[in-house]
């Protein structure tokens, strides 16, 4: 887990399901903890955006809510590419995985990734999200 207390400027939600994007951005906005919430319906789109904005103070630091199972590029492949971002960016940012998976393989894979703070189960519960954010950002 990144040792940061940098309150994120943006929340980035990556999910191929438009329903889940809608639900999760609404839940996130109900926490009133984010200045802006950006939704991407594919890992590629999110990566493209991040690469362009690695040094953009309007965007960074970011917190990423990342789905696992997506067509084309899945959450794990996203993480592989995310790992190649500059350390200065990663140190201030954090990734939370969000999935309905109950596959042990998925879970251990998520746990072993050093850029991932935690795996949250879908449906996202506002209480759980708030609690986790409080812990990450020392709120």
């Amino acid at each position: 887990m990144p040792s940061n207390t940098h309150i994120p400027n943006s929340l980035i939600i990556v999910d191929d399901s438009s329903v889940d994007l809608k639900i999760n951005s609404r839940i996130a906005s109900l926490t009133k903890l984010f200045k802006q919430i950006l939704c991407f319906n594919s890992a590629e789109a999110a990566l493209d955006f991040l690469v362009e904005n690695l040094n953009n103070p309007e965007v960074c630091p970011v917190l990423i809510l990342l789905d696992i199972q997506m067509p084309e590029m899945d959450g794990f492949e996203f993480l592989k590419r995310y790992e190649r971002f500059p350390r200065s960016f990663k140190e201030k940012s954090a990734v939370i995985m969000l999935s309905s998976t109950d596959d042990l393989g998925d879970m251990t894979r998520v746990e072993s990734d050093k850029n991932v703070v935690r795996l949250l189960k879908k449906p996202l519960q506002i209480g759980e999200l708030k609690e986790l954010l409080t812990r990450i950002y020392d709120l």
């Binding site: 399901s17 329903v19 889940d20 639900i23 999760n24 609404r26 839940i27 199972q69 309905s100 189960k121 879908k122 449906p123 996202l124 519960q125 506002i126």
Partner: peptide, 12 residues
């Protein structure tokens, strides 16, 4: 996954 979405909507 769709079930989790449905539960999410109910939540909301």
């Amino acid at each position: 996954a769709p079930l989790a979405s449905a539960l999410g909507v109910i939540n909301l």
